[in-house]
Design a binder for these strands. Sequence first.
DNA 1: ATTAACTTTGTGGAAATCCACAAAAGGATG
DNA 2: CATCCTTTTGTGGATTTCCACAAAGTTAAT
Lengths: 412, 412
Amino acid sequence: MSHYDDPFRGNFDSLEEFADHISELLQCPITIEDANHRLIAYSAHDDYTDPARTATIISRRVPEKVINSLWKQGAIPALLRSREPVRVAAISEVGLGSRVAVSIWKNDEVIGFIWALETDRTLSKEDMELLKKAAKAAKNKVLQLYMRKNKKEERVQELFWKLLTGHMTTEEEIKESFATMQIPAAPLFSVIVFRFATEITREIEKQISYLLQTTQQIQLLLYTTDRNDVILLAAPKSMNQPLKELHMFIESFALKMKERFHINSVQSGFGSIYETYTSIEKSYQEALTVLKMKEKFPEQICSIYGYQQLGIYQFFDLLLKKKRQGEFINPSLTKLQAYDQKHHSDLVKTFEVFFDHDSNVNETAKALNIHPNTLSYRLKRIAEIAEMDLHDMNQKVKLYIDIKLAKYEALH
Amino acid sequence: MSHYDDPFRGNFDSLEEFADHISELLQCPITIEDANHRLIAYSAHDDYTDPARTATIISRRVPEKVINSLWKQGAIPALLRSREPVRVAAISEVGLGSRVAVSIWKNDEVIGFIWALETDRTLSKEDMELLKKAAKAAKNKVLQLYMRKNKKEERVQELFWKLLTGHMTTEEEIKESFATMQIPAAPLFSVIVFRFATEITREIEKQISYLLQTTQQIQLLLYTTDRNDVILLAAPKSMNQPLKELHMFIESFALKMKERFHINSVQSGFGSIYETYTSIEKSYQEALTVLKMKEKFPEQICSIYGYQQLGIYQFFDLLLKKKRQGEFINPSLTKLQAYDQKHHSDLVKTFEVFFDHDSNVNETAKALNIHPNTLSYRLKRIAEIAEMDLHDMNQKVKLYIDIKLAKYEALH
DNA sequence: ATTAACTTTGTGGAAATCCACAAAAGGATG
DNA sequence: CATCCTTTTGTGGATTTCCACAAAGTTAAT
């Protein structure tokens, strides 16, 4: 192994050439990634690479399950902390062989990683030093890439805001813009909004961006921030159960924000899934509506993210307006409330919970901490007092809506 | 018994005096009623009267069950057909002893009845002739009563229309008017509208009026007609289950219109039950809304009469407006419809009926003429295709409303 | 014609619901 | 504080629902 002062003094046309050079020096496969684990360059002519590396090269990004493992196992946190090379033991579950990695730094920020796969040989202390120097040498090359990307990024941001605010009206125009900016086309998509407790700082944004760029649960088409909100244009991967995918993505995003960055209390919402780009504005508005309703009904709809799943809450604003005009007075509800007041009972709540639990006696009883027979007694009472037939769905739905609406109104 | 040419030639100050006179001639208790079986006059000094007569005198009207019996038994139809006296056999179930009756005519119209109770003696042929003459002699006296009543009636009509159109705004003012017109006060009331298939002729109105005046299921405060509609201000008799009372009254009214006058297809609706007179206009509008919705959803809500029972249909106009603006597109419904179209299935209908039957598998299966397992299979399918959780009431309600709303929209 | 995918109907047993009745507890009223 | 009314909880058994599996029938496409 050569021990010049700086083996990377020369000029390299491309990062590929650079990777090959390190590979030759260390006699092992080399991979260079950006801060978001996207593949930037990799050495060729390698006899053996492990499945993780193969997958990375083919999809041009590190598979998400590999990233997750590296987080759990501590390698990535270590690389983000220190400029020293780190040895990573093999993780056979995700097809990852033993390797050494070093982070590439610009000032106080990690802008990439170099990975050296220990296939035939284990790297010595000197080799590790060499890798560290390689990381320093790679800095400028990687930066250049970033610069180019950032300029493009700005144009893309502008486009996204135009779409969100409905300033592009024809499908054709939008499609063209997508093509020129090399944003992939998707048959279905939705706008997702993550709302944080505080305004999004540059620091947090980096972490969010990292999570978004590395996720492979959904396809991220566009992404921007706005005060406390992170706004994404996301495409589900399958046509069958797009809602489920978005749901799972959001839950795992929240979980990772919590686990990795200790950021709790992220509220999330997404609009309907559309096929036409001109509906992006609508999807965005719907996502905002979801967040608004979640604020009003924190417990009721805490596990709802999609506008579709909002169900009846979709038209609560509309109903509230009418209610304020004196419409929709529900004498059944009034009677129940009066009864509750007088007898310190809980009939309204009982009905609400019962309905929320799909008229399931056992579940409702558990939720209310009462005996199932008590519940059935109360229901009989409700039918009498409210003068309603508890098998008539129409009436039940109306009462349910009126109860929720009353709550909504109370919250202003 | 005297056989002058006309034993009623003399002048009688009042109908009471007249009744006493007949009573003396025939040696039996006499009751005079108007066409609606309200008591006009009765003879005093009678040793024995049957329970039916006692009740009639005390409540100043013939009890409804007695009227019903007389209809069924054929006495009233006979009296309305012919000017001859009719003998009515005792009907012990309603406490009615044997009696003879004759109708009082003005031109081609019956304006009242005279009843002679056969307590001690059975009336002879001659007695019957006498009774017929008495009926002729009573005509003018009864007519005078009508005239006076009609003038009052006109002022009352005017008041009612003012109330229905919201032209009296203070509770005080209305209460005063009620008092001066001797309309009884009621703690609760609602506006009922009966809508007939054709415009209401004088003939039909008489029959309707007859039914309304003779009912004792509810208290009739005011009453008028408007093209095809009969409009009532009605007060339920009990505070406990006013809705039920109104419901039963409407059903029995429709039944009687059918049985007695062969008028089918009466649509009925009533507004919410209010306590303040200023809400009469609202109750009227609500009753009209019920009729409007019944027109759109004939099968769904054929057994609904009350605005309260309208349930979710109360705000369909509002939702439709928004829907027309492109809001509330329900992708779940869209998918189900697409599937139905493609596979000639019936998922939307299945869900609708299932929901309408309070999620009862057996009932729904019967209603759809399918095996219960088929239903449960379809439901599983619906959950998959629509990407929804069939235990989530919120989503179910939304889908249900959207299905009904789509139907409503289709009907313009 | 032959798949393959989807739909309907049947069967049986575990689980749950429903209902009537009864006992006990709690609260308001005089 | 005795009493009445309402509410809660318990018990047991008839009925219904739920679910998994199997078989047979339908439909659309190769």
